[in-house]
Amino acid sequence: MINQLRKVYSTLIVYNEGKNKLDQNYKWFVTGNHEVIGIHEDELTSKDISLLEAFLVPYNIELPILTEEEEKWRQVIQSKEPTDNAFELDSSFRFVYFFISENQISPNLFNDAIHELFAKRVPILWKNGSEGIIIEKQQDSDENLSYDQIIDVLMSDLYVNINFFVGPFKEDLKEINHHFETLTNDAKTVFGYTNKPVVTYVDAIPYLLIHQTEPELRDEISKTILQEYLDDEDTLKMIETFVQCNLNISETAKELYMHRNSLQYRLDRFLEKTGIDVRQFQHAMPVYLAMLARK
């Protein structure tokens, strides 16, 4: 194919990783054989570019070249056809969406570091220079790190802020393209609500529910539940911490450096004023949702 293309585009060159640099004056594409080719921009019209992009994968010069396995995943994720039997899985897997600060790190370095954290090389698909997904296969090992730990390890080596949105484990490829779309969209929504670096699909549910609620209803929920506490940042921060501490008074008091009696007193005051006892789960949950709704 390269020879055929060269007949049309005389400036075509093949990128040889480690030997020559990617010239910014060239448009780069990945062929079906995972070769990266470049054609000088002077030789390309916008029509040519559209045509080439239809059968070659545009290559962002910052992104790592896909391995065979990554290519297989990319195809299944982008497929418009049913994906159930696209290829055979050797274990269950999950998508982990990642987002890193823009222009802070080379994706190749990120890949190198991520591969060192898992027993087997994990496929990584970059969407652009700052986001993508890791396809983590389920492994029974006592050496697995949590994603919170992974962030700390990576931050100390790569000096970059990272967010992970961890999806559920899947046993098959059924509707995997849809799952991928939903997961990446959910991740973007959730990171608009929280500063937590790692969010799982379970943690995400309240944020997604609130996000999908009409603004008028959101407003009504926060006003109805929080009443005169709507703008009381101190009390709301206290309740948020209380929820995060599993409604445990001692732990919350310790976390907020507050005497437990003061905390009890402030929770009692909240009950008196609103009729809501956040010490009970069924009351704490709507208050938590109301706090999210006002964000």
Partner: peptide
């Protein structure tokens, strides 16, 4: 950029690369 500030960081999770030995954990950065 953080990488150009001449700083070194240690965080709460003292986790290491589980499949690397101590030498390579220290050398990796």
């Amino acid at each position: 950029a953080p990488k150009d500030r001449d700083i070194a960081m240690v965080f709460q999770n003292y986790a290491l690369y589980p499949h690397m030995d101590v030498y390579n954990n220290m050398a990796f950065g």
